[in-house]
Design a protein around this nucleic acid. Structure first.
Lengths: 197, 197
DNA sequence: AGCGTTAATTATCTTTTGTTAATTTTTCCC
DNA sequence: GGGAAAAATTAACAAAAGATAATTAACGCT
């Protein structure tokens, strides 16, 4: 069930917690497999799913009237994936969460976990730690939109997440950066021609 | 010391907590006044200040080499203000926090509060509630950058925060939206001429 | 109230982005 | 491995945004 990697994850994520605490949460989790292209959470869903990605990659996107989509979030192995609409805002998910690769998750029903988190002080503190790290990530992204140009945002992405850049089609990276795929292609061209000089 | 407004805030913010819990935190707070223009947190500061704004308005900005500034955040009465660099990332603040109006804060030293929050289960849960609401706000902002055009972002700001729009110079709103003041002026012109038609 | 400062608008020009469509390249699947 | 589908690039044009500077408007202060 648990491999060495998972155990080392649990121990680091829940650092300072004893096995009983960890087990109280982990026992509610089950494994779930998604094939590339499968939808994990659909638009309109109210299920409070919380997934820990063991392997694979999931993309959250907004579907426009005309069929185009805009990527809001990418998460991959070692990260959590959840609809913030259902879990934080307690409203139906406005976005679609889809596996871009064959993906394996440990899934939790947040509605079931929440009472446990809130009644165990050590778990509450752990929860706050997770929230802080998610907040830091989200704020860093806001910063990038305010402080950087599209080109600089792309360079930052390549620099900080080269692996992800290679695993995800450029068109999704483009909308994640707030630009169109055509514009990203031009940026890539500018960069490569500047690099030659 | 505490007026009716403050008490009603404390009771709603710390809903479900008893007075003893609230007092454990509030007793560490002190009042602080800032005149319009005063710096609250300077670049490089490592002090873990956490301010609850009773009155006034504070702006966080990045100062460029050439003297220009880019606004990252605005907070006003009823909101908290803190350098996420010092509190979450535990690094010196990269940004400057300045009062745009005469401002009154209740200030806490987060380094002193944190152990109390982490040793009181009810306060830990309250802390998580705050983090969740901050996360929701930050994610909403990321969404706006991915899903909306600059013009749509400005319209959203006017719609959702008309009061703030009236209290803050447009040039700060512009950079907050990720555009230049000149560009915002053109957007405003486009909107008003479209409105006439 | 008037003066000096700051902010906002406008103008001009350059650069970048968006849009749409065509073309080339890559990927995926049988 | 070959062929269809998807992705990426390129092209051409329109629209928007950036940069800089000049002008006008609003604000702050004594």
């Amino acid at each position: 069930m648990l491999n060495a990697e998972d155990i080392s994850f649990y121990l680091s994520a829940f650092k300072g917690l004893d096995l009983k605490d960890i087990y109280d949460v982990v026992k509610l989790a089950h494994s779930k497999k998604l094939a590339a292209g499968d939808i994990y959470i659909n638009k309109g869903s109210t299920q409070q799913k919380l997934g820990y990605i063991r392997k694979g990659l999931i993309r959250a996107f907004h579907l426009k009237e005309n069929g185009d989509d805009l990527t809001l979030l990418l998460q991959w192995e070692g990260k959590f994936i959840a609809s913030h609409d259902t879990i934080i805002l307690q409203q139906p998910s406005r976005f679609i969460y889809q596996a871009l690769e064959d993906t394996v998750l440990m899934e939790l029903d947040y509605a079931k976990v929440e009472p446990i988190l809130n009644h165990n002080p050590r778990l509450s503190a752990t929860q706050a730690t997770f929230l802080r790290s998610m907040l830091a990530e989200s704020m860093a992204r806001v910063e990038s939109f305010v402080l950087l140009s599209p080109e600089e945002r792309y360079l930052q992405l390549v620099r900080e997440k080269p692996d992800i850049v290679n695993r995800v089609p450029d068109k999704h990276l483009a909308t994640l950066l707030g630009i169109t795929p055509v514009s990203l292609s031009r940026i890539r061209k500018r960069i490569s021609s500047a690099g030659k000089r």
